[in-house]
Amino acid sequence: MADQLPFEKPIIELRNKISELKTFTIEKEIDLSGEIEKLEGRLEQLEVDIYGNMSPWDRVQIARHSKRPTTMDYIERLFTDFMELHGDRLYGDDAAIIGGIAKFEGTPVTVIGHQRGKDTKENLKRNFGMPHPEGYRKALRLMKQAEKFSRPVICFIDTKGAYPGKSAEERGQSEAIARNLIEMAGLRTPIICIVIGEGGSGGALALGVGDHIYMLENSTYSVISPEGAAALLWKDAGEAKRAAETMKITATDLKELALIDDVIHEIRGGAHRNVDVQAGYIRQTLKSSLTELTKFEKNELVNKRYEKFNKIGEFDHVNGVMVDE
């Protein structure tokens, strides 16, 4: 069971035991229903205890789970008439970001998201969801198109980061990310961002300058990966667990710090356990978010977005110190 996580071990073991007993009941025709019921009660309690007390590192594991639903999984379930639009018109088509037009509850929208693969083959095609500049430039092209036709933009964020490669640098990875930040800042149409998996640094933020920013309960958003931070801080990538805790990267931590608008509840054990139900939770959030944002006039929207980001930051003053000119 490659997709079971270390902290889930007690749950999996108990679940296996219950299914063994069930098989036994059928094969040997012995009634163990009382026993099974008791164990199922215990399983329920165990799930509440374990999933209700996940550490940041546990959540990192869920956010990176190989079965974790991707942008495509949600697009299929949340939108109708999705049509993928390819290419940045400048260099190529980056499969690490997908985007297109669709309808949400009957309203035309533009949908963009990082796209990971689910197996090795697809991951090679999609570069593990790590975009090149052309991915960001495609996203920007689709956003400008959405602005032209007054469609709200919905971004799904799910990347370890922008691709750290030679070709990416040659084609201006920095500029591509930076351009998206400033263009999103001024985009005259609503932007809703949802972190669905990993929100890795600038490569995530390049789809993240929105009017509303949400995170799934078990997703993460960080300036550097826990491994990277641990390597820099304690010269040991093995300290990633400690770094994950220190850096405040979980949805609840970031909501507490007022860095995101809200946390979207996940089903117990993580979104991968029932994608349909999870998509339903996202749908509710999207509906209320769109209802709120479509009330604003375009200028008002851009002004509010400016104010939203302008107030982010914590600083102090050295009282009374004057610096000579």
């Binding site: 930040l181 300058v209 958003y221 850096m247 302008n310």
Partner: peptide, 24 residues
């Protein structure tokens, strides 16, 4: 970005860009 301020630092990228958009 300054790692010790976590996502606060990351968001300064967006913050400075929104300010530059005003200038623009």
């Amino acid at each position: 970005a300054r790692m010790q301020e976590g996502v606060f630092s990351l968001m300064q990228m967006a913050k400075t860009s929104t300010a530059l958009n005003r200038l623009h």
